[in-house]
Simulated assay, not measured.
Amino acid sequence: MKRESLETGDSGKRDVNRHRAGPLSIAERSTAYRGLLWSQSVLLFGTGLVFPFYLIFLRESGSSFTQFGLAYGLFTMSAALLHPLAGRLSDRWGSARVLFISAWGTALVFLLLPLLSSVSQLYAVQIVLGLLGALQKTAEKALLADITPSDHRGRRIGAYHGWGAVFSGLAVMAAGGLVDLFSIDFIFYVGSLAVFVSGCLLYRYRSVSSVSGGD
């Protein structure tokens, strides 16, 4: 009996989402889906403002093409290395909590971008952005699977990514005008604010944070 209790406790620690609450009702799933949809669409708006023009920022920082390639390689490789750990953290802490960390961490990094003054700082930022991106991508997909019922999961996921693409596209178009009116630094600050707001929206939709893993 004691051993069975210990095993149950270990299982609960490994899967926070599943054991923190019972299965969600249809209404709760719908609310959680809307919360995730809006929060990650706003996040994509923020990153859509920054990343296309961040490429220009990197190139104009005086980096050679070799340094430019290395910077993006570090971004990709750091993300690749963290994805497995991000999945374990999502299971242990809950996907919503991992998304909080990713959103507010990314918002902070965006504020630091205009302050970069050396290639070594650029490399460090690329590694951090890669790690935060891995947390976001893995936790987003895990949570999306949890809150979409299996009988029409494909339709919900398709709509989810469609809205995300719309917000991302609008951001790129808006960013061009903002750069002309203000500066590249300005869109980094606006992007940071949007990504921070995406984390706040996750908190606003509390049901996102109490998702069960079952169908």
Score class of each variant (00 low, 15 high):
residue 188 F to A: 12
residue 214 G to N: 13
residue 173 M to N: 15
residue 155 R to N: 04
residue 180 D to Q: 09
residue 116 L to G: 13
residue 196 F to Q: 03
residue 136 Q to C: 09
residue 119 V to N: 07
residue 195 V to E: 11
residue 135 L to R: 05
residue 126 Q to F: 11
residue 210 S to F: 10
residue 135 L to M: 14
residue 118 S to A: 13
residue 138 T to A: 12
residue 155 R to G: 09
residue 202 L to P: 04
residue 142 A to Q: 08
residue 198 S to T: 02
residue 132 L to F: 08
residue 121 Q to V: 13
residue 188 F to H: 05
residue 114 P to K: 01
residue 199 G to R: 05
residue 112 L to Q: 08
residue 213 G to R: 03
residue 113 L to K: 07
residue 113 L to H: 08
residue 181 L to Y: 00
residue 197 V to R: 01
residue 171 A to P: 04
residue 138 T to Q: 06
residue 198 S to C: 06
residue 196 F to V: 05
residue 198 S to F: 01
residue 155 R to P: 04
residue 123 Y to C: 15
residue 177 G to A: 03
residue 170 L to R: 01
residue 214 G to S: 14
residue 200 C to Y: 00
residue 190 V to I: 13
residue 167 F to S: 15
residue 126 Q to R: 04
residue 140 E to K: 06
residue 178 L to M: 15
residue 150 S to A: 15
residue 126 Q to G: 10
residue 121 Q to R: 09
residue 128 V to R: 01
residue 135 L to A: 14
residue 111 L to F: 08
residue 112 L to K: 04
residue 142 A to W: 02
residue 173 M to S: 15
residue 184 I to A: 13
residue 183 S to P: 06
residue 183 S to L: 13
residue 155 R to S: 11
residue 144 L to I: 04
residue 140 E to P: 01
residue 119 V to E: 04
residue 174 A to T: 13
residue 134 A to P: 00
residue 170 L to W: 00
residue 163 W to S: 14
residue 170 L to A: 14
residue 165 A to M: 12
residue 114 P to N: 03
